[in-house]
Design a protein around this nucleic acid. Structure first.
Lengths: 177, 177
DNA sequence: CGATCGGTTGATATGAATCAACGTGCGTGG
DNA sequence: CCACGCACGTTGATTCATATCAACCGATCG
């Protein structure tokens, strides 16, 4: 991954929820195109390269530009789809399932963007970020990842994820829907 | 509320996550306008009145109809906003907070649609639905609602929610963002 | 070379799940 | 019209998954 960022909400009680991760080529937020005031924040995990568009400019060009319209619709649909997946994970699934789900989700998105060798993915996250994304504590994330490591499913350290047993990881994390 | 429905995903393990509730006037799903295959299901809680639109028809009229474009954009933004709220609730908040949040969210949406008397809201849900929406068991939902009742915050039975202490309910459930 | 950060590990605490029993209202069929 | 069954909710006892608290370790960095 060339760079990585995330969108999150800081909860008054001190916790935060990571709402999604942003990868190269992602629209930062489809809603942001239409809404002036945003309820969330965003932060990069690496150096990142952003392109900005004026809201007025987009709106002006949008009506007569079917390709832009289609791109926005597609981005919006993907956001909704991903949000549904995370809600399902957070609401109904165990710690192991959530973490496996997150890894699977990320490696799938990364795979559409770059060629992957030996199932190694650059994923510059700390366990804290995983915890904030899947609604667990960093301590518990550490335990689950250790468990995965002991079972030979993955290696994860130094910002690199290596998948060693994809079928089993999928069995745990996938919803296959 | 004249009628009520919800959008949900059936998890292979037998649980289900309610992704959102649909109220009169809501677009069923913005994504459904563009995508052929949907990953979720929907169900009504009461008799409901639906209007259908052909996907082709919408697409054809969409380019040259700025009002429709705006309506879709607005609906899509609201969906994303609500999804963020639920992800935050599911990921970071306690059982009491989640349930208070859900009630607040629903009464707010209902209030924009009908005139409310005496803080009484028709809300034809079973505790099972609340449980499926906020990621708890029906048993625990029952306990929390009893607690709220004992503290004089709400009454909830027979499909009617009566709010008795809105400030306190808000203090518990609101994120005030 | 000490300090800080991220991760690991162990002990204990706790919120919510699970298991189970019971109550109540309601619809249905005898 | 009664009796039974069923859906829904309540309540108590217990279990379990994850949080919390705390100590420690290794790497990195000023």
């Amino acid at each position: 991954m060339r760079w990585l960022a995330f969108r999150f909400f800081q909860v008054p009680n001190g916790r935060r929820q990571i709402l999604n991760f942003l990868l190269p080529g992602d629209l930062f937020s489809t809603v942001a195109v239409f809404e002036e005031r945003l309820h969330f924040s965003a932060q990069t995990l690496t150096e990142a390269r952003l392109s900005g568009f004026g809201r007025a400019e987009i709106k002006a060009r949008w009506a007569d530009n079917p390709r832009m319209t289609a791109a926005l619709a597609k981005s919006s649909a993907a956001e909704a789809y991903n949000a549904d997946g995370l809600m399902i994970a957070l609401g109904q699934r165990s710690a192991e399932e959530r973490i496996a789900y997150l890894f699977l989700h990320l490696i799938q998105r990364i795979s559409t963007r770059s060629v992957i060798r030996d199932q190694r993915y650059r994923l510059p996250l700390r366990q804290q970020h995983i915890a904030d994304a899947v609604g667990l504590t960093p301590v518990h994330v550490s335990r689950v990842i250790s468990l995965f490591r002991d079972r030979g499913l993955i290696e994860f350290s130094g910002g690199v994820l290596q998948v060693l047993n994809l079928p089993e990881l999928s069995r745990i994390g996938s919803l296959d829907y």
